[in-house]
Design a binder for these strands. Structure first.
Ligand SMILES: [Mn+2]
Ligand SMILES: [Mn+2]
Ligand SMILES: [Mn+2]
Ligand SMILES: [Mn+2]
Lengths: 219, 219
DNA sequence: AAATAAAATTTGGTAAGGCTAATTTTATTT
DNA sequence: AAATAAAATTAGCCTTACCAAATTTTATTT
């Protein structure tokens, strides 16, 4: 099996791969994990030896079939634990990520499946991310952000791209949750700030970064 | 906070202290953890520096007040997770110990208390060990074993002293659980084997080691 | 095509937590 | 009281996973 560190690298590579679909460089991994590039190079060698990734200076880092399988399972465990923490233990959605970051590494062959069943086979985690099934398949992952909405358009929040408590607490303050309806009133040309109406209420202005962190469904 | 290794040492020392109440030596700790005595000496220095234990060649290792507090919390988490795994996820009692051994190290200030509440504030874990309360207090710990019962006497199983799956599966095979009634028919003088009747059924013979691993209540 | 900047890699270290083998201290026998 | 055995400790190494600094490779400008 994999060490805690190996698992965190795997999951990180998996996320970078999903997020952009573009070349994954040692620097990108280093930044994402808050590690030194030198450490990343070490781990790339290690994961390559274990046949979990393939590295080519041209194509960057890629997960092998086995690497994808293993990464998916870690993500599955992470998201299932998040559901458990929120629904069963009553945590708020800005508290669960860090705890799940530890829980996802608990090793037991049947734990994820049992937890899945206990939770009623949820499709999405509390941040709107799809939970991989036991077979590795998972529901659709949304990709349109609030920043992509046309002026005047309406949409519904389906997921958050950023799970830091700073962002989630800001959302709480604005009374935005998964399912909240948002109308884009105006896009400020100067800095792409967005003027929005939350659930039909008074206008509020949010940054471009904010808009790019909210995944929405046009409806 | 403490590392995973520090926590496992703390818990080990706590258990040795409860089990016998006698002098805790580096060798005893090494044996209990399956580590080399040299490693134990290193860790004793580390835990002493952190003021979690006090070590005196005459008195052996002792937990400080802080060490006791911290060890108790780890035990609390371990036993609460065991209840969760058995009652909510449907594991058998011989599977839960090893998983709880990992879960007990998840660090979050309110996790144990939330889990405790979710489980309905259980008093004992599935092996019959008392679960420390949030304030550190806990229900009575039983100490009489089946080997202490007088010939002809009857008793009820209240806890197991050994949580290895070898022992627990043997108990399962004999149809012995927490609460099972056992009568001591005869004690073989030669090797202290015990002839018992489980729930009034036909006589079976078990070893002295077996008898010493079952905690009972005379009733 | 050079020059420069950025990214990747190598080299040499550190800290934690293990180990074995050797040594010293403490207990137990004779 | 010696001799012997057992326990504790020290010394020296190993692996994992990180780091900083130096170097090499690759990209980007000029
Ligand atoms: Mn993690
Ligand atoms: Mn999530
Ligand atoms: Mn443990
Ligand atoms: Mn237990």
């Amino acid at each position: 099996m994999h060490t805690l560190s190996e698992e965190n690298y795997l999951k990180c590579i998996y996320r970078l791969w999903q997020d952009k679909g573009q070349k994954i460089t040692p620097t990108a991994i280093a930044e994402s994990l808050g590690n030194n590039p030198a450490s990343v190079v070490d781990m790339i060698r290690k994961l390559t030896d274990k046949q979990l990734i393939a590295y080519d200076k041209k194509k960057g880092v890629e997960l092998t079939v086995q690497g994808q399988k293993d990464a998916t399972l870690i993500v599955r465990r992470h998201r299932l634990w998040e559901v458990f923490l929120l629904e069963k233990l009553g945590y708020h959605w800005d508290e669960i990520h860090d705890i799940a970051e530890e829980l996802e590494h608990i090793k037991d062959a049947s734990l994820a499946d049992r937890l899945d069943k206990f939770l009623g086979f949820p499709e999405y985690d509390p941040h709107g991310d799809p939970i991989p099934k036991a077979n590795g398949k998972m529901a659709k992952r949304f990709s349109t952000t609030l920043a992509d909405v046309k002026t005047g358009g309406s949409c519904r929040v389906v997921a958050v791209k950023d799970t830091t408590s700073q962002f989630l607490q800001y959302l709480q303050k604005l009374d935005i949750n998964i399912g909240t309806k948002i109308q884009l009133i105006e896009k400020i040309p100067f800095d792409s700030s967005l003027v929005i109406s939350i659930n039909g209420n008074e206008h509020k202005t949010v940054s471009q970064k904010f808009g790019e962190s909210l995944l929405i469904d046009n409806s």
